[in-house]
Design a protein around this nucleic acid. Structure first.
Ligand code: FES
Ligand code: FES
Lengths: 147, 147
DNA sequence: ATAATTAAGGACAAATTTATCCTTAATTAT
DNA sequence: ATAATTAAGGATAAATTTGTCCTTAATTAT
């Protein structure tokens, strides 16, 4: 559904929301271990989420790392998708027509549209905070690596 | 949602179902023009759909080209997705966990699962024939290129 | 001030996906 | 038989995505 980069962005952000505060910042090492992602690549992605999109914060130096403010935690999942350029995906024709449109739709459009709307609603109503809380509550996971 | 290759596969197959019969085969030139796809790449894809997956048929030589039998037209969209290796996509965790599972789910799982099931049902119940018929009936299109 | 720690940033490498081109094989028409 | 037409198949190229590594900058502790 999403690119690797977006998957890492989502998992990392959820993990930071769960563990990172201004006075307990999380390093890239801990993050990439927790979410099972390549550290350098993940660092690149977090850099972008910080710089261009203000979805997370970071500080360099000892005890530095990543964290989120309350406000940032309340962002919907969709904010991360937008930051990662997956917005197009949520607006794309399932058969790859140039444009998903009501006036010149593909033969999957009428049925697919209904499902796509549910996806969008899910991504717009779920916040990072919700997801982080679910993990704290214990029934769900941010990593299910077998070994 | 799907790769370019899969999008071309779907559109090409729908177009062949709509126009190609044993005594009116469609050439790769006409197909790629109709669905707005790169001819050589499309040819590769159709080759595979023919050879490994028996979703379409073809013959070389003058008046050669691609076509489908009645039986082939009745295949669900999912058959093409399977042939194109997109099966994994329909079984994948939306956050990219190693495995989408009920026992160690990600925090999006419970809500996402419901939507994913609708997608799967759509792909399993819609047949190529249905989609081709919709185009014949005139309200939908296999190409909406602007220029 | 100096050393230690951690993210930022840039350059580069590997892998995958998308795409093209050319030769061969199959089929048909003359 | 020969020529013409069309898909099959292989080699290769271009583009994109994924990933690594190294140096620099920022921050903190001594
Ligand atoms: S036109 Fe294809 S999904 Fe809307
Ligand atoms: S575990 Fe993530 S979608 Fe099922």
């Amino acid at each position: 559904m999403f690119s690797k980069a977006t998957e890492y962005a989502l998992r990392a952000t959820i993990f930071i929301a769960q563990k990172g505060t201004e006075d307990n910042k999380i390093g890239i090492g801990e993050i990439s271990k927790a979410i099972d992602s390549p550290p350098s690549f993940t660092a690149k992605i977090l850099q972008a989420l910080r710089k261009n999109n203000k979805i997370i914060r970071s500080v360099s130096g000892p005890n530095g790392g990543f964290y989120m403010t309350e406000k940032m935690r309340k962002l919907p999942v969709r904010a991360i998708l937008e930051a990662m350029g997956e917005n197009e995906m949520l607006d794309k024709c399932v058969l790859g027509l140039e444009k998903c449109s009501e006036t010149k739709p593909c033969p999957m459009h009428s049925k697919y549209k209904i499902i796509k709307e549910q996806l969008i609603e899910l991504f717009e109503t779920k916040t990072i905070q919700h997801l982080a809380d679910d993990i704290k509550n214990g029934a769900v996971f941010i990593n299910n690596k077998s070994k």
